[in-house]
Design a protein around this nucleic acid. Sequence first.
RNA 1: GGGCAGGUGGCAGAGAGGUUAUGCGCGGGACUGCAGAUCCCGUUUACUCGGGUUCGACUCCCGACCUGCCCUCCA
Length: 454
Amino acid sequence: MRTVYIHDTLSGEKKEFKPVHEGRVGMYVCGPTTYDYAHIGHARVAIMYDVFRRFLEYIDYDVLMVSNITDIDDKIINKANERGIDPIEMAHYYAREYLKDMDNLRVRRANIIPKATRHMDEIIELIKKIIANGYAYESKGDVYFSVSKFKEYGKLSHRRVEEMMAGARVEVNEKKREPLDFALWKGAKEGEPWWSSPWGPGRPGWHIECSAMSMRYIGETLDIHGGGADLIFPHHENEIAQSEAATGKRFVNYWMHVGLVRFEKEKMSKSIGNVFLVRDLLKKYPPEAIRIMYLNAHYRKPYEFNEQNLSEALILMEKINATYAHLRSVASEEPECEICNEYEEKILNALADDFNTREAMSHYLEFIAKARNMSGAEAAGALQFMEKMDGIFDILPHNSNAGLEERLIDLVLEIRTKMRKEKRYDIADWLRDSLAEMGIKIEDTKDGVRWYRV
RNA sequence: GGGCAGGUGGCAGAGAGGUUAUGCGCGGGACUGCAGAUCCCGUUUACUCGGGUUCGACUCCCGACCUGCCCUCCA
């Protein structure tokens, strides 16, 4: 199996990937807390891990991907209260919409998509274990993790407890023994959703659900745990503390974090009003373009989102589509393509080096440029190659099977060609414009007409 | 104040101790009823600054400056 290198946030180094179980990968990706519609930052995380997963599968790993939905949390409760609706129902509504948006971005669903509210038993068991191990304490219906007991606290985000104390601004709460302690369980206040527990009715704290669900489905040590870079602290730091306090084992071997999406040099945030929703973007741009946009950048770097980048991605998409269409029209029966193997090697090597999709895309685009001039057996090979690679990238047009629709389009094009020969350009242009309106773009080339979907 | 990630050509954005990234844009040519696409050529000494290591650094080391993020909720 091909050697993969992964940059690990904890060690700050690129390390050779060695799974816990040979040939298998257990990866857990932090999904959203569902109190609003998905934005393009969520999309970046989902698309990147989708591609990483597909790549790992492509090189023959057996991947178990788990991606959670946090459907109980203070933010959910607050928002639902503002609107006077049921918090859990609201969370589930946004969870469904999130999954729909991601489906529309061609993100393959994780093998398991666990919800926090369906795993109360695991969460409670885990908290009990942490208390039993002496790392957490009960306080008036709440349970807190005692940060000072966990000596390695801060190892992921590379900060020291003393420094964080100096930085002040920690929430004041007289139930906590020390300011940095964080809640594993919160007693329910009047009107809040609750589950019964040994500490009374309440709900889980923010971080515990990920520890409980990831270990439940993958095991006590995960190969890969990922999410957005803003989760490094405190979310992932706290997950490490809880999980390792419970099991005494290393929680995660490779921590991966996707850089944040920015707009005009600022992080997207509702207060600044620069949040772009996936659903709004999809009204204007096809999913392929959005995927290409993100594939065209290194996942760990911050991404500067703007319409120019997106329209550039759209142009690339059209080029790729056009080449794909060209290959389909000229491909002969027996595929044979030497250069394809060469490019596959380049692309896989780039991806194996910490999932460098940008470099992979540069090879891919170079290949596309060459493929435009191919024909016959080579074109057939190139076609096959593009479809193979699409198992990873998923940026080619879908529903491209040659059915009735395609035959009708060919017929229309034949008519147009005839009209052009007779210099009936009014009719020829009318046909072209009509097809364009339906999303079929055509081009007259030396070798005849070619068409593709936009 | 502390931590982290960066600073590359008109723009986006990889990479690497000495060899063309890639794409977009722009200019010229070919082709063309028009449009688009495609093909060829060009866009000359791009790599924040100052030191150091080296035969040689944009690439390694040290320092400075700048930007963003995290340190409160966030993918």
